[in-house]
Simulated assay, not measured.
Amino acid sequence: MNWTDPSAIGYPALFGGVLLGSVIPIVPTGAVVGAAAAVAMTTDHLSLPLVLLLAVAGAYLGDVITFAVPRFGSEPLLRFVERRQQAERLAKGREQFARRGWQLVVIGRLVPAGRIPVLLAAGTLGYPWRKFLPSGLLACVLWAVAYSLLGILSGGIFDSPLIATLLATVLVLLVTAVTTLISKKRAAHQTEGHR
């Protein structure tokens, strides 16, 4: 491997960063994908199709791991959750996953800070693998395309990889902040409606 070639570092950093951030949310995975797409648009160091493929692969593997943790330890974890939650809330969660689980998985991946709670709930509540795997893949594809588009947009505006990467990162953070704000307002509105 030629370590002076930027792609020798870029592709593993992209895949590893997305995988790590998908399991442990310490890496802003959307910013990693947006920045890689911006670099792909402004240089020949990275290929946009490979950026998309590796982003999807890293996100999907991370989501499968996150979903699998409560599935394989589901009995002790479920007993722990049952002690902490009301039985009707658990029943409602199971019912929601039974009716529209694939939608919850897709939306959870696209909404900031929604993915891990949805995946842990799905795993804990016994959402079937045969339903999770295709919906998880669809969610990861949509997510990777959305964040790559932000990088493509910034790369199309600026020729400088540095400026395009910075703009992609700012766009990702802005989109994340706006969607988080909207989610919080909707949750507050729903809470008021239930009173």
Rank of each mutant, 00 (worst) to 15 (best):
W129M: 08
L119E: 02
P6K: 00
A121W: 01
P117I: 06
R115N: 13
I26Y: 07
P6S: 03
V32G: 06
A8C: 05
K184N: 13
I24H: 06
G114K: 06
V170N: 07
A139I: 11
V141E: 00
F132W: 04
P76D: 02
S154C: 10
L171H: 10
T180R: 00
G156E: 00
P49G: 01
D5W: 00
L19Y: 09
R186Y: 12
Y147V: 03
P12S: 02
L181I: 11
A31H: 03
N2H: 01
G58A: 14
E88F: 09
A139R: 08
D5R: 01
A35C: 11
R84G: 06
A35G: 06
A59F: 02
E192L: 14
T191I: 14
A57R: 02
G156L: 07
A87H: 13
S135P: 10
L150M: 13
L133W: 04
D5A: 03
T179H: 07
L90E: 11
G58F: 10
E82K: 06
A55L: 03
P112F: 03
P117K: 06
T180H: 02
G10I: 08
T191Q: 14
H189P: 06
L125I: 14
G156H: 01
G16M: 08
M1K: 02
A59Y: 02
I107D: 00
L167S: 10
I163W: 10
A122G: 13
G155W: 04
A40M: 08
L20K: 01
K131L: 14
K92I: 08
T124R: 05
V118G: 00
V64E: 03
G34I: 01
V18N: 00
L142R: 04
G21I: 01
H45R: 11
S47T: 14
L14F: 00
S47M: 09
V145S: 07
G155P: 12
V175I: 09
T191Y: 12
A36C: 10
F158N: 07
L90T: 12
G93D: 10
F72N: 13
P128A: 02
I65G: 14
T124A: 09
R79E: 15
S183N: 07
L52H: 04
E95H: 13
G73E: 05
S160I: 08
L104P: 07
W102D: 00
P28S: 01
L53A: 15
Q86M: 09
L53K: 04
R195M: 12
L167V: 15
P161T: 05
T29A: 05
L50P: 13
V141G: 00
M1Q: 04
Q103E: 14
F15R: 03
T43R: 12
L52C: 05
P76I: 07
L78N: 11
Q96G: 09
G151V: 06
A59W: 06
P128V: 04
A168L: 12
P112I: 07
L20F: 14
L104F: 12
I107L: 11
I65F: 15
Q190P: 06
L50A: 15
K131V: 02
G114C: 08
Y60R: 04
L54K: 08
L20I: 15
S160A: 13
A113C: 08
W3E: 04
Q103T: 15
G93V: 07
A98T: 12
P76G: 07
R130Q: 15
L174C: 14
V170E: 11
T169H: 06
L171D: 08
P12E: 00
A168Q: 03
V106M: 03
D159S: 09
A91L: 13
A164L: 05
V175S: 03
